[in-house]
């Protein structure tokens, strides 16, 4: 109950602080900006470690296994895990269930090929040691190469060939409206594509084609801008709705009280600033 009310007060304070930026840069905005940056940086670091590194890397290298049943290479392998457990107990947990000792994380199948990812990750940390810092470039090269490979087919198949297929439309379909739509679409695609020709000088007739292309692009940008305004207003409505909800008695009139306090502080600090300026002058 009290936690809910406290949460509402914090939410209202931070929302109003950020909105106060519309008036001018001020202490409330600065405070909320720093809180936002700090909290989000910590939030992302935590998520990256506990959702990615721990379960998906360590969990694949050392999935949970019964210690007594380990044999051969895995006995040695889970021995390393045990050392890590001693050093970092929370990250590399061991647990006893019904008197049986288990080592490892989660129940994903063991996949030692993740060692490559592990090594590349360690290479990134070598940045801290200038002499071998160059090894981190291998990791960066992997990220870039992997992304290019992963995306190449998808983009080419769906965005290039798929869209070319969709643009091959008849100029006359038997229906006037549909035919006009097709012609507009075709002219838009071809002139738009031509605008992005860099190795040909756009002069004479080609300049007209390129100009038509940029007009089509401008129409697209205009429409996008309209959609963006729509989205921003929706988000504003969402925040206002929360502010209205939190202005009720059950939340201790959080919105009106905080709003009044902030307006008063801003007016006072504005006056002080003015006085200081006058004194300086």
């Amino acid at each position: 109950m009290y936690i809910g009310i406290l949460g509402a007060w914090v939410a209202v304070f931070l929302t109003l602080s950020i909105l106060s930026y519309l008036y001018k840069d001020n202490v409330f905005y600065k405070l909320s900006e720093h809180i936002f940056v700090g909290v989000s940086a910590a939030h992302w670091a935590t998520i990256a470690f506990w959702n990615q590194v721990q379960p998906n890397l360590f969990g694949r290298l050392w999935p949970q296994a019964e210690v007594a049943a380990l044999e051969g290479f895995n006995k040695f392998w889970y021995g390393i895990y045990h050392v890590l457990h001693v050093l970092f107990e929370k990250v590399f947990p061991e647990e006893t269930i019904n008197g049986v000792l288990y080592r490892g994380i989660g129940d994903q199948p063991q996949n030692l090929s993740y060692l490559i990812a592990f090594i590349l990750g360690v290479f990134m940390l070598f940045r801290l040691i200038p002499k071998i810092g160059w090894l981190s470039r291998w990791s960066l090269a992997y990220v870039i190469g992997m992304a290019a490979g992963l995306r190449l087919y998808g983009y080419m198949s769906s965005d290039v060939i798929g869209q070319i297929h969709a643009t091959m439309l008849p100029l006359w379909t038997g229906n006037l409206g549909e035919s006009i739509n097709n012609i507009i679409l075709i002219v838009g695609v071809l002139t738009g594509l031509f605008y992005f020709f860099f190795s040909v000088e756009h002069k004479g007739a080609l300049k007209i084609v390129s100009r038509i292309g940029i007009y089509f692009l401008m129409v697209y940008f205009g429409a996008s801008f309209g959609f963006a305004v729509m989205g921003r207003i929706s988000l504003l409505i969402g925040r206002f709705n929360d502010l209205i909800e939190y202005s009720g008695k059950q939340y201790g009139f959080a919105t009106p009280i905080l709003l009044l306090i902030m307006v008063a502080v801003l007016i006072l600090s504005g006056r002080k600033e003015k006085k200081n300026k006058e004194a300086e002058a």
Partner: peptide, 17 residues
């Protein structure tokens, strides 16, 4: 989608993707 993305998705709708 959020409104801002809609224009980018229209070609996929038009093509039936």
């Amino acid at each position: 989608n959020s409104s801002i993305q809609v224009n980018q998705l229209l070609p996929y709708v038009k093509s039936g993707q």
